[in-house]
Write a protein that binds this DNA or RNA. Structure first.
Lengths: 227, 227
DNA sequence: CAAAATCTTCACACGTTCTTAACACCAGAA
DNA sequence: TTCTGGTGTTAAGAACGTGTGAAGATTTTG
């Protein structure tokens, strides 16, 4: 959140215009009108994205692009008045992630900023797992371990455990669980549910007569302990 | 190295034009004029990049975009005659990596294709071979060995094994496997799948009644053991 | 075109999973 | 104590999913 954007641009009007738009969209903005300072600011401030104009007063924007790209994979969007095909191709091949020609629509620019940021953002592979004491669940792999030892759950058992864990700490009523696991038009028979709870506890609890994870709320339902 | 590009576009002239350009630049090209078939081809052919027109004769291109993006991070460049700001923003926010408006300059398109491919490529570092115990697979040479002895697999068997191995450790549901192997619009018939699993096991398992590599998750699907 | 390989479909045996029913257990109330 | 309502446990059979051989359909190959 609050990604940092470095704007290297010498047109005062565009600076004003972009500052406003970017800041209302909750980006942190740094800006400079000169290429040399741009490279320097990139080094010191470590922005998440750079908006780079090609026509700068001191050095050529292409030079700035190449120097930054030589050191970093940071997202760079070229924003330029030069709309010639060759310049676009050169900038893109020199490492720019996108190229927008002035004049541009602000919403398109913002959308392209989002694209560039989502691609460069540390696309951490989200492990969809859950751990609580000796219990480990990998929802994606459909795998459940107790004390590092894999145990086998049937489809309904897995669904039940997932439901409980997703609502850890909350009490789930019998009818809620039945609706979620068996579907909305199943009769309100809690016999099966009790059997499944027993089986589930036998598999994941150390002592199923004194459950640690799945607690019974008499007259109401069941609840998974809060982490 | 010979990246595969899927072109979903209904304008015959553009198809001809792009085919020529892309093939002279040594890309492998697959193309279709319909969105539904596009999704299906994406599933079966696993392209490195998709060029998507928004105005298709069967379904809306945005729908194609969303459906593909729901399953994959593959590079997608929208190539459309619709140049409205809102459409660009919608497509980019729906997951497109870039948006080019017709008419376009071919060199700019090619440059943007290079940008999209170079950004996606590092994440798709695909292993060329796979080894697990007595099983060896060379994906490029389309070769499978068990105990150093080459065995013959049919195309679907190979595809199935590849899919399982690429997701080693994860449970793949029947419907997921069917979609990936047989394509998007195949009916949900798991009969064939069971037969292929049996054949595959007979070929790679020592004792196919007690499989070592391909495990069954009753009621859910199959999975390849974790390395 | 014929032969071979591959794929699909069907039937059925077998194993797993689910449902159901019976009963034990544990409060708290009469 | 006995009764009562809710819960835990066990076991049997029903329902469902899976493995497998073979036959027929389709595609590929020579």
């Amino acid at each position: 959140m609050n990604e940092k954007i470095l704007l290297i641009e010498d047109d005062k009007n565009i600076i004003k215009f972009l500052s406003l738009s970017l800041e209302t969209n909750h980006y942190k903005l740094i800006n400079t009108t000169h290429g040399i300072e741009g490279i320097s600011l990139f080094m010191t401030d470590n922005p998440d994205l750079i908006l780079l104009d090609l026509g700068l007063p001191d050095i050529d924007g292409m030079e700035v692009l190449k120097q930054i790209r030589a050191q970093s994979e940071v997202a760079i969007i070229v924003v330029s008045a030069r709309g010639q095909e060759k310049e676009k191709v050169d900038a893109l091949d020199a490492g720019a992630d996108d190229y927008i020609t002035k004049p541009f629509h602000i919403n398109e620019l913002l959308a392209r900023v989002r694209v560039a940021l989502r691609k460069k953002s540390p696309s951490v592979v989200k492990e969809k797992t859950f751990t609580c004491d000796a219990l480990f669940i990998d929802f994606e792999k459909y795998k459940v371990c107790v004390n590092e030892k894999e145990i086998h759950l049937t489809p309904i058992e897995f669904k039940l455990l997932t439901l409980l864990v997703e609502n850890a700490g909350k009490v789930l009523t019998h009818s809620f669980i039945i609706k979620k696991v068996w579907g909305y038009n199943s009769c309100e028979d809690s016999q099966s549910l009790r059997v499944f709870m027993a089986n589930l506890r036998r598999k994941i609890e150390e002592d199923s007569s004194r459950p640690h994870y799945i607690l019974t709320e008499v007259g109401v339902g069941y609840r998974f302990i809060e982490r």
